[in-house]
């Protein structure tokens, strides 16, 4: 009896699983219907190649509306965010992405600005050090000049004193 029950439960469970995965109108599938927010979460990372510089989630044209519906369809089919993006890149080129992919010439895009910033900072640092050295050098030379002047004054005073003594 127990074995029969086991078989019965097993059969019902298997039937439910098969129904759930094969019937498109099943309750399982309806629960997974993507919302507008799910679609927009992906669409906002993409740009339509026709409407320049307008993110896909806010573009009001019919073409962009169709694209959003395509994203919804792909999500319904169980595609991941990355798969959908790759699909659009394959269909329409890398310009649909909000940023160029990090490969080939595009690497320059990411490397050049920080490299120039660092070079600028290094140049400033070097300029500062050389200016400070110049300032210190000129400070030393001014002090030397002052010392030389005071030494000269000392000798001049001595000579002056000697002359005065002799004249007296």
């Amino acid at each position: 009896m127990k074995t029969e029950k086991k078989w019965l439960y097993g059969f019902i469970l298997a039937a439910l699983v098969i129904i759930a995965f094969t019937n498109p109108g099943s309750a399982f599938a309806q629960d997974n219907t993507p919302t507008d927010n799910d679609v927009n979460a992906i669409a906002r990372q993409m740009f339509c190649p026709v409407c320049e510089n307008t993110p896909l989630d806010v573009c009001p044209t019919e073409a962009c509306k169709d694209w959003r519906e395509l994203i919804r369809l792909k999500l319904t089919e169980g595609w991941t965010e990355q798969q959908i993006k790759t699909y659009f890149v394959e269909q329409y080129g890398a310009r649909v992405l909000a940023e160029p992919p990090m490969q080939g010439l595009n690497l320059l895009m990411y490397i050049l600005p920080p490299a120039l910033m660092l070079a600028g900072a290094a140049f400033l640092g070097k300029a500062f050090l050389s200016m400070r050295q110049n300032a210190e050098r000129s400070k030393i030379s001014i002090e030397n000049d002052k010392a030389a002047e005071s030494a000269e004054d000392k000798y001049a005073n001595l000579i002056e004193d000697e002359i005065n003594k002799r004249e007296a």
């Binding site: 990372q45 080129g93 890398a94 310009r95 909000a98 940023e99 160029p100 010439l105 895009m109």
Partner: peptide, 18 residues
Amino acid sequence: FPLISELFTGQKVTVGPP
């Protein structure tokens, strides 16, 4: 950069807010 990319590779790219 998008202009350079188009000029040298023929591929247009978007440099967006991110």
